[in-house]
Design a protein around this nucleic acid. Structure first.
Lengths: 338, 338
DNA sequence: TGCTTTCTTGCAACTAGTTGCAACAAAGGC
DNA sequence: GCCTTTGTTGCAACTAGTTGCAAGAAAGCA
């Protein structure tokens, strides 16, 4: 079945140690035996079994990649970049769909069974108890797209959601909107809370602007559409900061369905800048999350923790940038963004 | 560090065999020792190491989940369903992003190093040499979204792309279009070829309909937009069958940008029915691939092969269905789809 | 050539489990 | 109570590798 190290040793006429050492970088082998071994190995089509070697080395080169966000299109991009980045570093992602798992301990048990070298939790909606469980178990952990303050002792890489809320508020204020609102995802999500906090905070400096808010039941197209439909039946605001791009598009659909025009009747600003937001049929003004940077920093952090488990944790928070497209009215002449 | 079976045995005052057997279903252990062991295990927080046990059992319960399709939004749904489905069966997906790998042998080597129990290749654009390499190596393999004829001896689950082409052709003919075209992805993709073949074949029965075709450089929004822009500068058809939904949306954008209206000036029919196609800002008429069925069948097939490696392979081809939305003109009164 | 130093190599014990076998215990039948 | 059958248990050898140690080989130097 499988070609083993023993068979290679036999064929090459050397000990198993010699074979093991030829496949270990930095081990002491003469060129002569190395050649013999390599010859035998390629004859037999041998490749070492990482899992068997993990027993003694304690390294599986597997990273648990955990997410519950299999519906937000940005996460396809996230998975793409994570898998490529891990592969480049010689690591393999063991993917875990958290949607079915509710208990941090069972996730911990699961990933321990496979003795992964580290865990990346990629989602803003995973409760902090999950990363904390890994921290407590001494398993290298990074919470990507997480919230800084929530998980003390856990390395977090993400954005400043409060600042994003402020940024959205500033954009709306600068564009002269005087009745604005926040349309968030579920109120329980920390990201939603933070964005709303920042939004509110910034607008408290503009007493002339009337602020309201409401929450959709999920970060989804349907939830956005429903909530906006409901809002339009009352006395809608002039512009909405939506918790996320998918929500924005749901809202956009509801506005258009109601026979209103964007951005003339109602303005929308989203958050994420997913692939689809630039599609001309959508053309969403939004705040871009620097995904490549967040992922690169996450990978860096997990590798650093594996190499030095006692490394102190830190949070790396990246700045977001406003991407102006067609769903907010343009800046007045002479006014510039900041 | 890790709690081992030995420690549990010591604490419970039994042999390691007894512990091993308590965690093996169907093994012979008395209730008395089982209780002692379970007690000790939960005291120490023990969970067996799957990888160590895989050495003797030959089962890692890991499945290589291979794809190169990290840009098509349908694949988020595909990954979601695959990961959940595998989890339910007690299997773990080891995700491989094929975008960087070019050689079947290096993919084979990689997955052998982790002694995965089986491999699922989920993509219509992976060359058949990849699944064949696994077949030759005796590793259970399923090619999801693959093409039947291409990989003899490999279990394929997917759709009949030729029939999809015919279906699109019939829809256009029934709606009275008389100048139609196929806008495919890269001409090298077998799916593109098959869809074009079926489209052409069906329309050969309508000598009154003029058929043309062209190929975009990729299955992407930008490629669709570019190709449609080019087509519109010439003498465009009345309706286009696009190779895929993303391509369709690119084409849609180009048409709208040119000041033309859909479906009045130009009709579009896509293929896939991804999440976004039903968004009202897009509202794409398309052919739906039965993704849940394809995935369920793929999982069934891989499990069956693991249980019985000598099992004969088969192809499972699922029917697609037309989803009528707003990018084709309606059927004439009295005419019905078939 | 002889002595020291550095390299290479194999042995054997180890990693975390599983499993065939034999010994023993318990239960069942008469 | 004795014999047979069935159930439980531990030993030891096995899975595919790694690695500390000591011995032997090669190289360096005078």
């Amino acid at each position: 079945m499988q070609v083993t190290l023993k068979q290679v040793a036999e064929r090459a006429g050397v000990s198993t140690s010699a074979v093991s050492r030829t496949f270990t970088v930095g081990a002491s082998v003469s060129t002569k035996t190395r050649l013999k071994v390599e010859r035998a190995a390629s004859d037999l089509g041998y490749s070492p079994n990482v899992l068997a070697s993990s027993l003694t080395t304690g390294r599986t080169k597997m990273i648990g990649l955990v997410s519950n966000n299999f519906h937000n299109p940005v996460f396809l991009e996230v998975f793409d970049q994570f898998t490529r980045g891990l592969q480049v570093k010689g690591l393999r992602p063991l993917l875990v769909n958290l949607s079915d798992v509710v208990d941090p301990q069972s996730l911990l048990r699961l990933l321990r069974q496979y003795s992964v070298d580290g865990v990346i939790i990629a989602s803003s909606t995973v409760p902090p108890a999950f990363p904390r469980a890994f921290r407590a178990a001494g398993i290298p952990i990074v919470h990507s797209f997480g919230r800084y303050s929530a998980s003390q002792g856990v390395h977090v890489v993400g954005i400043d959601n409060v600042e994003c809320g402020r940024m959205a508020a500033r954009s709306l204020a600068l564009r002269g909107y005087r009745r604005v609102a926040f349309l968030g995802g579920p109120a329980t999500a920390t990201t939603t809370q933070d964005r709303w906090t920042g939004f509110q905070d910034e607008l408290s400096r503009h007493p002339d602007i009337i602020v309201s808010h409401s929450f959709a039941t999920a970060y989804s197209y349907d939830a956005g559409q429903q909530e906006m439909t409901r809002l339009l039946s009352g006395h809608p605001a002039e512009a909405y900061f939506c918790g996320d791009d998918v929500l924005s598009i749901g809202a956009l659909s509801a506005i258009r369905s109601a026979g209103l025009s964007v951005p003339d009747d109602v303005g929308i600003i989203g958050l994420n800048d997913m692939e689809m937001s630039r599609w001309q049929v959508i053309n969403l003004t939004t705040i871009r999350q620097p995904i490549p940077e967040i992922i690169a920093a996450s990978l860096e952090a997990i590798v650093a923790q594996i190499d030095d488990p006692d490394r102190s944790t830190e949070a790396r928070i990246f700045p977001c940038v406003l991407i102006e497209r067609g769903t907010l009215r343009p800046l007045p002449v002479g006014v510039s963004e900041t």
